[in-house]
Amino acid sequence: MNQFEDMRIFAQVMESGSFTAAADQLGLSKQFISRRLMQLEERLGVRLLNRSTRRLDVTPLGQAYYESALRLVAEVEQAEQSIAGQNAQPRGTIRLSAPLSFAMAHLGCLLPLFLQRYPEVSVELDLSDRSVDLLGEGYDLALRIGLLEDSTLIARRLALIDRVYCCSPDYLASRSAPQAPEELKDHDCLPYGHSRQVQWRFERNGKPLTINLCGRMRANNGDLLRDAAVAGLGITYLPLFIVGEQLKDGRLVRVLDEYRTEPLVLSAVYPQHRQSSRPVQALIEFLKEHLIELG
C-alpha cells in the first residue's frame, strides 16, 4: 500500500463521511481503513481526523490534506484515462452542483440525454442556490448564474438568461402599474435573497440605476416568488425560465420592461485540476450545445 493509495482512502473517507461507508465504496474492511489512516497520521506527524463514536470531524490540517489529495488523485486518474486512449468514451462520476429552479427547469430533461450519449459516465447532482466550495466539498463542476467571484476556478460561458419584472393582473387591478423604477417604493415587491435590504438594478438611457426596496416576502427560491406573484402579492424580478409559462397564459404580466438590464450569464465553473477531465468537459460541451439561449 503506497502513499497514493493512502491519499485515495483518506479522500474516500472524507467524501463518504465514515469508515464504514468508505469501506463499502472501496471494497475494503473498516478495520483496514482505520489502521491505514492511523499509520498515515503517524507518518505525517499530525492528526487529520478527530474520531468519536458518532462522527468524524476533520481538522484544519486534515482539510488541507484532503484538498491536496483530491487534486492528486484526480490528476492520476486523468493521466491514466489519457494514456488509455484519447478516442475512448468518457467514463467516471461527475459531482455536479446546480441552482434548484434552473435544474428543475432544464437538467431534468437534459441529463438523461447526456447519460444516454455517454453510458460510462454517471452524475451525482446536488441542487442548491448556495455557492458551494468546489475544492473543499469535492465537487467537479458547478453551474452558476450571474457575476462570478474572483478565484482560481475556471469558468466557461454556457448561455444567457433573460429576466423580467412581472406581477399578476389582479395586483395591477388594485395598483396602477409603475411607470419608472422610482415608483417601486409605493409597491409591494417580492425580492430574491436573504438580506433585509435588496437592490434591483435598472438601465435608463444606457446608464445604471439602483433602487433599494423592501418586501413583505423574501426568498432564495424563484419558484416560491413566482407563485407569490401569481397570487397577487406583488412585483417580482425573475428569469424567464421560471416565469415564462405564467407570462404566456396571462397569470403574470410584464412591467418596467424598458428598464431591464442585460441578461445574466450562465457559467460552468470547475477547479483547474478538472480541466482535462473528459467527463466534465463532455458535460460542459453538451450543456453548451443545448442551452445556447435561454432568454
Rank of each mutant, 00 (worst) to 15 (best):
R130M: 09
Q116K: 11
I83A: 12
A79D: 15
L127K: 12
A98L: 13
V76E: 14
M104I: 08
G108S: 05
R71F: 02
D129M: 06
L127C: 06
G136Q: 10
S122F: 03
L125V: 11
G62N: 05
L100C: 07
G146S: 08
D140G: 03
P60D: 00
L113T: 07
G62C: 02
L96I: 06
L100F: 09
A74N: 13
G92S: 02
D57T: 14
L96A: 04
V73H: 09
R95Q: 13
L115F: 01
L100Q: 10
T93S: 09
N87E: 14
Y139E: 03
A88W: 06
A64T: 14
I94L: 03
Q63R: 15
V123K: 04
L127F: 00
G108F: 00
D126P: 05
L61M: 12
S131D: 12
V76F: 07
L56W: 00
T93K: 12
G108V: 02
V121Y: 01
L70G: 00
C109H: 09
R55W: 08
Q78C: 04
L143V: 04
R91A: 15
L100T: 15
A69K: 07
R144M: 10
T93P: 05
C109S: 12
A64H: 13
E149G: 09
R117K: 12
P60W: 00
S131V: 13
L147V: 13
R95P: 13
P112A: 01
A79P: 11
E149I: 03
S101F: 00
D140P: 03
E67P: 10
P119V: 01
L72I: 14
S101I: 00
R117C: 02
V132L: 09
T59P: 01
M104R: 10
R95K: 14
L143N: 05
L111I: 15
R130Y: 07
Y118R: 05
R55C: 10
G108A: 00
A103I: 08
Q89A: 14
L148S: 14
V132S: 08
R55L: 11
A64Q: 15
L110N: 05
Q116L: 08
L110I: 03
L134G: 04
D140Y: 01
I145A: 03
D126L: 12
R144A: 12
E75G: 01
E120V: 02
D129P: 13
I83T: 13
D126K: 08
L72C: 10
C109R: 08
G85N: 03
R95M: 09
D57M: 09
S122C: 06
L100A: 07
S128T: 15
M104A: 10
T93Q: 11
E120G: 04
G85P: 10
F102I: 04
V123Q: 02
S131M: 08
M104W: 08
